[in-house]
């Protein structure tokens, strides 16, 4: 058994490249000539004020929003140019966790996860069921949540179930839209360590929109800040010294100081 070509390519191509992205809704400019490159195996945190287009950027990259202009590639492929099975093959290597989980309300948690596995693999039903239940445990949900409908779950549990669905195919990239928002601090740090662990063992690339300073400090390799319709990207140390007023306010505001004190102390 020789190593498959996908493993060798890991460090040669970036996971996500965005070049010259322009998004505009009516008279409101969201992104203007925005560039972004995310490396394989990297955990990128994306921050920015309300309405600066964090979620729009995420939706554009995964192909849910057609941009006005710009070249976007996931794992070297231009999703917008692909149709049918080629598109499906790329999407199978990507998982998305939406802000409120976006679980299919007519299906139980385990069915939600199994649906993804069924539509992308030809595995036997017993294995699909087992894999789905495994994902439920991996995201820290109790097994008795498996047969429940999403409406019977709390917000935090719904988020975990959404992550389980995003991880169903063991994707190479996961997009997380505010994964720790609405979780209690213990749950949130659990979530962080889960992401970190998966990233290490699976060489996962993580694109994470977040406002959680603890997450940013704890697990991100680099941080992308959406300001002035563009992106400023760098490590935490680099951004701490960025003179842009919003970035200064973000990292040196009272909440940020408390977090850094807590971590330093």
């Amino acid at each position: 058994m020789i190593s498959s070509p996908e493993n060798d390519a890991i460090h040669t191509t970036p996971a996500i490249t965005v070049h010259g992205l322009v998004n505009r809704f009516g008279a409101q400019w969201i992104h203007d000539d925005l560039d972004l490159e995310v490396m394989r195996g990297e955990i990128l945190g994306v921050i920015g004020g309300s309405g600066t287009g964090k979620s729009v950027l995420l939706r554009t990259i995964v192909g849910l929003n057609r941009p006005l202009q710009g070249d976007i590639r996931i794992l070297g492929e231009r999703l917008s140019a692909l149709r049918g099975s080629a598109r499906k093959a790329v999407l199978a290597r990507v998982g998305v966790l939406f802000q409120s989980g976006a679980l299919f309300s007519g299906l139980t948690v385990v069915e939600n996860i199994a649906l993804v596995l069924k539509s992308h693999t030809s595995l036997r039903p017993e294995r699909i069921d087992l894999l789905a239940r495994q994902k439920i445990d991996m995201v820290g949900l109790p097994q008795d949540a498996a047969e429940k409908l999403p409406t019977k779950l709390s917000g935090g549990m719904r988020k975990r179930a959404g992550l389980a669905r995003a991880l169903a195919l063991d994707p190479e990239i996961v997009f997380l839209d505010e994964p720790t928002a609405g979780l209690d601090p213990i749950g949130a740090s659990d979530f962080d360590s889960l992401i970190l662990e998966l990233q290490q063992s699976l060489k996962l690339t993580v694109f994470m929109v977040t406002h959680d300073l603890d997450s940013l400090v704890a697990i991100t390799d680099r941080i992308a800040v959406l300001v002035d319709n563009k992106i400023r990207i760098g490590s935490l140390e680099e951004l701490l010294n960025d003179p842009h007023p919003w970035i200064q306010e973000y990292f040196h505001g009272p909440r940020a100081r408390a977090t850094r004190h807590a971590i330093a102390g």
């Binding site: 495994q134 994902k135 445990d137 109790p142 097994q143 998966l198 290490q200 063992s201």
Partner: peptide, 23 residues
Amino acid sequence: DRFRGVLQRVIDAKDAIDRTPKP
């Protein structure tokens, strides 16, 4: 070493699934 984490997760998951009685 980098595979130890995921294996442990899966072992834990398997234990949890086995512990849960089938309806």
